[in-house]
């Protein structure tokens, strides 16, 4: 379908052009709704990149299977925001599509929170040092649970407003280019994670519970001592 620059809804085979909101307040909420979804993507790109580039590469801490599955939960959850942002930019996002995206975000976050809760409970007994390095006093799986709760709250709040936050995409070229660049970076983040986990797992079906080496090359990194 050609991009007419108008939001359209199909009812059966009939295409209706949805008029953009006229009231200033509604337009502000729509724009806020769009940039909130972009921020959702940027936040998870930041979290996934910090986990991989700082903790895995710089600190030489190999992620455990549950850590990897929580990364997958974050990606699943972000697919909802990705759906909303990309289709909003293409002007093909319908109100029902908006709710589909929020539903995907909630389901992904729900699965991810089950994984992080499991890992928290594994290390909850007094005296247990936990897995990996703590950041600001909390381990990464605890931060992961907090992020999943934030996502579920965010999506829940947007759903209570119905279509008030139905995203209105930017019209300026640089803003649209910036958002498309963020989308490409998000996809690249998944691709890089795939390569990195292949190097860690090698040609085995599953990761060991406490991985100590990159099995594809047989390389054992030396963890950086914490000050």
């Amino acid at each position: 379908m050609a991009d007419t620059g108008k939001l359209t809804v199909f009812v059966g085979n009939t295409r209706y052009i949805v008029p953009e909101p006229k009231r200033r307040w509604h337009r502000i909420m729509g724009k806020l709704g769009f940039w909130a979804q972009v921020f959702f993507l940027v936040a998870y790109i930041g979290v996934l990149s910090t986990a991989m580039f700082y903790f895995q590469f710089a600190q030489a801490e190999l992620p455990c299977p549950l850590c990897i599955s929580q990364r997958m939960g974050m990606m699943l959850s972000s697919l909802g925001a990705l759906f909303i942002v990309s289709h909003s930019l293409k002007r093909t996002l319908t109100p029902s599509g908006f709710m589909t995206g929020l539903g995907m975000a909630i389901l992904g976050a729900l699965l991810g929170s089950a994984m992080s809760t499991r890992q928290i409970l594994l290390h909850i007994l007094p005296g247990d040092p936990g897995y990996g390095t703590a950041m600001f006093g909390l381990h990464l799986y605890t931060w992961a649970l907090i992020s999943f709760i934030v996502v579920m709250t965010f999506a829940g709040v947007l759903l209570t407003f119905g279509t008030e936050f139905l995203p209105i995409p930017p019209v300026s070229k640089w803003a649209r280019g910036l958002v498309w660049a963020i989308i490409v970076i998000f996809v690249a983040t998944i691709a890089i994670n795939m390569v990195v986990v292949f190097v860690e797992e090698g040609f085995n079906w599953f990761l060991p519970d406490n991985p100590t080496s990159y099995q594809l090359f047989g390389f054992t990194p030396t963890p950086v001592p914490t000050p």
Partner: peptide
Amino acid sequence: MDTLIFGLLLAAALVVILVRTRWIVLT
């Protein structure tokens, strides 16, 4: 298996961006 699932998520992300049909995206 983890590598394959990341590959699946990568394919899902591309489908989410490129395909407009909602049932394909949801599948």
